[in-house]
């Protein structure tokens, strides 16, 4: 559906996007994840033809965005980070303009406007000035605009930024709905959001793609950070002895809270953290040492994100200096 190859964008000496390549299949919700300034918006702006690239190509259904912009743009609906709304117009007037600019006419235009108003639930404000609408409604009008012309791909740049929790839930539901009939790409720096809506996640940092997978698979990537925290009534020497019988001789931390009470963190390089919990429990209970608190910790997308984006940091120290 969308093929991005070796995309590079430089602002003077600063590389905002650095040799980015990926492919997007039809009919999924994709999440573009990265810290602020990672190049998410830049990439989306290039993909939608708002910005030129220094190098590389973007093809939508085979249409090159730089060579055949008209064809390529017809296949996409785009909501930039700040919804591009004319404040002194009503949603109806605004949608009429965007629809006409997308080549819709007469009955078809009127019908599509009704459809997107229905989909985004902005019927109640259709004749109010956009200026007077709440942020959530403004965002909806922005999404409605992107939906006009029935594009195959909908690209949303941080669609939930600045909304209140209820509005966020509503917009997420809307995006999920859209995902059923369109390919949706959304960017965000909020991990839980991407985890909640997206089927595939692209993580970018410093303009580079550092991971591209389903959220569950990305979590597996970070099995190494799975671990168990527990508190036991024992002395350090006794604890070390017990752990050794379990074959754990390193990769743990002991922390004496008070005499005879230890806080311990054990790493568990496996997906099955529970079995390690079980072993620990029986080993300590056999020696009459009571575990008074225990919690297993599975890595989540957040950890993956931090490791991947920070790992990149050290990797590209040289280039950062250049910037």
């Amino acid at each position: 559906m969308i093929t991005v190859e070796h995309l590079t964008k430089c602002y003077g000496d600063f590389m905002a996007v650095n040799d980015l390549s990926f492919q997007i299949e039809e009919g999924h919700v994709y999440g573009f994840l990265g810290p602020n300034g990672a190049g998410k918006s830049t990439t989306m702006n290039i993909m939608t033809g708002c910005l030129s690239a220094t190098d590389g190509t973007v093809r939508i259904n085979g249409c090159d965005i730089f060579e055949e912009p008209r064809m390529a743009k017809k296949l996409m609906g785009y909501l930039p980070e700040q919804p591009p709304l004319y404040m002194n117009e009503t949603p109806i007037e605004y949608l009429k303009f965007v629809g006409a600019a997308k080549g819709l006419k007469g009955k078809e235009l009127a019908q599509q406007i009704e459809e997107v108003i229905d989909q985004t639930k902005i019927g109640s404000v259709r004749n109010k000035l956009i200026l007077a609408l709440s942020k959530g409604y403004k965002q909806r009008v922005g999404i409605a605009q992107a939906l006009l012309g029935n594009p195959k791909v909908i690209i949303l740049d941080e669609p939930t930024v600045g909304l209140d929790p209820i509005q966020i839930i509503e917009i997420r539901d809307l995006i999920r709905q859209l995902g059923k009939s369109h390919t949706v790409i959304l960017s965000s720096h909020i991990l839980s959001e991407v985890q909640a809506i997206c089927e595939k996640v692209l993580i970018i940092a410093k303009g580079r793609l550092v991971a591209f997978d389903a959220p569950e698979n990305l979590e597996k990537l970070r099995q190494s950070s799975n671990g168990i925290d527990f508190t036991v009534e024992a002395l350090p020497e006794e604890t070390e002895e017990i752990l050794e019988t379990l074959g754990i001789s390193e990769g743990y931390e002991l922390n004496e809270v008070e005499t005879g009470l230890l806080k311990i963190h054990v790493k568990a390089d496996t997906d099955d953290v529970r079995s390690v919990c079980r072993q620990l429990f029986f080993a300590f209970s056999e020696k009459q040492k009571a575990i008074v608190e225990m919690a297993s910790k599975k890595a989540n997308l957040e950890d993956v994100f931090i490791e991947l984006t920070e790992g990149d940091d050290s990797l590209e120290e040289g280039e950062v200096e250049k910037e």
Partner: peptide
């Protein structure tokens, strides 16, 4: 000023 130029750029018009 109101960032609607991004809309114009993303529409299928030159």
């Amino acid at each position: 000023r109101q960032k609607t130029d991004q809309l114009l750029y993303s529409l299928p018009i030159t």
